[in-house]
Simulated scan of single mutants.
Amino acid sequence: MPGVLDAARRLPQGSVVTVTCSPSRSVAATIDLAEQLRACGYRVETHLAARRFESHAHLQDTVACLDTAGIGDVFVIGGDGDSSAGPFAGGADLIAALAEIAPHLHSVGIPCYPEGHAAIGAQLLNEALDAKCFFAGHMVSQICFDADTIECWLVRTRDRGVALPVYIGLPGVIARRKLLGIALRIGLGDSTRVLSKNTGFWRHLALEAQPGPKIMEIIWDAAAD
């Protein structure tokens, strides 16, 4: 995004900054931005999109760049689009390759989807999650606004034996229309209807400079009910 470095410099030194891997930009662009942010003194978690890598050598070169920059935190995703630029069809393939060439990584995160995925069936999502757990250290959920959905998904996931720590995805300060647009684009369904009924959620989102704690209160209150 334009001005991303200027915006990042407003954060306290040592903040954790995540760099996503856009399908419209190259892996090199992601790594370049990650390197610049690391040079500014931030701890950087770099997204690695499996389908954007052209070869194993491409992945090895990327890991070497991250090592040189002192970046040891990555987040592995499949990446948007049906076609792959190289040998990695999804996140599980990239995880397996990283386990061989980069066992020294500080942390490896993977996505999870309490409300499902717009383009991937529930069974395939479960199989993919299970296949990544051997090398991943944590999972981060897709944004979901329904506490019951999160709770039910987490119980089912733990019952399957997946014990990875999970970070619940929550939105920061963002315009309401833009947030709804994102939710619809990434395939969120039932939880968007929760938003329309929860005026307290919108009030805190609009007025709080750091809405995270308030949103968590709302989620846990809903879970308790």
Score class of each variant (00 low, 15 high):
Met1Ser: 15
Met1Val: 13
Gly3Tyr: 13
Gly3Leu: 04
Asp6Pro: 03
Asp6Thr: 11
Arg9Cys: 11
Arg10Val: 04
Leu11Ala: 13
Gly14Glu: 09
Gly14Arg: 09
Val17Thr: 04
Val17Lys: 00
Val19Trp: 03
Val19Asn: 00
Val19Thr: 00
Cys21Met: 07
Pro23Gly: 00
Pro23His: 02
Ser24Ala: 12
Arg25Asp: 03
Ser26Leu: 07
Ala29Gly: 08
Ala29His: 07
Ala29Gln: 11
Ala34Arg: 06
Gln36Leu: 14
Leu37Arg: 10
Arg38Ser: 14
Arg38His: 13
Arg43Ile: 05
Val44Ile: 15
Thr46His: 11
His47Ile: 09
Leu48Ala: 04
Ala50Tyr: 12
Arg52Ser: 13
Glu54Arg: 15
Ser55Cys: 08
Ser55Gln: 04
Ala57Met: 06
Leu59Glu: 02
Gln60Met: 07
Val63Gln: 02
Ala64Cys: 04
Ala64Val: 06
Leu66Ser: 05
Asp67Thr: 02
Thr68Met: 15
Ile71Asn: 02
Ile71His: 05
Val74Ser: 03
Val74Asp: 00
Val74Glu: 01
Val76Leu: 07
Ile77Arg: 06
Gly78Ile: 00
Gly78Glu: 00
Gly79Asp: 00
Asp82His: 14
Ser84His: 06
Ala85Lys: 15
Gly86Lys: 11
Pro87Gly: 01
Phe88Lys: 05
Phe88Leu: 04
Ala89Lys: 08
Ile95Trp: 08
Ile95Ser: 01
Ala99Phe: 10
Glu100Gln: 15
Ile101Ser: 10
Pro103Asn: 01
Ser107Thr: 12
Ser107Gly: 12
Ser107Lys: 13
Pro111His: 07
Pro111Thr: 10
Tyr113Gln: 14
Tyr113Asp: 07
Glu115Asn: 02
Ala118Val: 14
Ala119Asn: 05
Gln123Asn: 11
Leu124Cys: 09
Leu125Pro: 05
Leu125Trp: 09
Leu125Phe: 12
Asn126Val: 15
Glu127Pro: 02
Glu127His: 12
Asp130Cys: 11
Asp130Val: 12
Asp130Pro: 01
Lys132Phe: 09
Lys132Leu: 06
Cys133Val: 10
Phe134Leu: 05
Gly137Gln: 06
His138Gly: 09
Met139Phe: 10
Val140Leu: 12
Val140Trp: 12
Ile143Leu: 15
Thr149Ile: 13
Cys152Gly: 14
Trp153Pro: 08
Leu154Lys: 04
Leu154Arg: 00
Arg158Ser: 01
Asp159Asn: 03
Val162Asp: 06
Leu164Lys: 07
Pro165Arg: 07
Pro165Lys: 06
Val166Cys: 02
Val166Pro: 03
Tyr167Gly: 15
Ile168Thr: 14
Leu170His: 03
Pro171Thr: 01
Val173Trp: 02
Val173Ala: 02
Val173Asn: 03
Ala175Ser: 10
Arg176Lys: 00
Arg177Asn: 01
Leu180Ala: 01
Leu180Val: 04
Gly181Met: 11
Arg185Val: 09
Leu188Asn: 07
Val194Phe: 07
Val194Glu: 00
Leu195Thr: 07
Ser196Pro: 04
Ser196Leu: 15
Lys197Arg: 13
Asn198His: 12
Trp202Arg: 10
Arg203Phe: 05
His204Ala: 11
His204Val: 14
Leu205Pro: 06
Glu208Pro: 01
Gln210Arg: 06
Gln210Phe: 15
Pro213Lys: 01
Ile218Gln: 04
Ile219Asn: 01
Ala222Leu: 10
Ala224Arg: 08
